[in-house]
């Protein structure tokens, strides 16, 4: 019995709903950075876009997706560590994004072995 229930058409990534949550967190990051000073604003906006896109590129390259996720969250969260919300958002994005990464990797292996 297969546990992975995604159909081939939907299986662009390991878990679409989790991928959507990561993208939403990236959007939060962009929104939070709009009022920030220059360094946090730039790292937040660019990083947020990277985070939002990361789960959707993982099926092409898990390495690239993971790099986008890590760079997108960590630079911003480090610069704005004192804000509480930035490191919290980053930790949750990394956690869910990591899960999506593992799912995507497993799915890729399954498909290639099929």
């Amino acid at each position: 019995m297969k546990d992975v229930l995604l159909t081939d058409g939907a299986a662009v990534t390991g878990h679409p709903w989790m991928a959507t949550l990561v993208s939403v967190l990236g959007l939060y990051q962009v929104i939070l950075s709009l009022h920030a000073g220059s360094a946090i604003m730039v790292s937040g906006i660019i990083g947020g876009i990277l985070v939002a896109a990361s789960p959707w590129v993982m099926h092409r390259s898990t390495t690239l997706g993971a790099a986008m996720l890590v760079v997108g969250t960590l630079v911003w969260a480090t610069l704005a560590w004192w804000s509480i919300i930035a490191p919290l958002t980053a930790i949750v994005a990394l956690g869910i994004g990591g899960y999506v990464l593992l799912q995507t990797r497993a799915l890729t292996r399954q498909r290639s072995s099929a």
Binding site: I31, L32, S33, L34, H35, A36, G37, I40, M41, G44, A80, S83, I85, A86
Partner: peptide, 8 residues
């Protein structure tokens, strides 16, 4: 955080 300008 956005409405209260937490970042700046």
């Amino acid at each position: 955080g956005f409405t209260n300008k937490i970042m700046n």
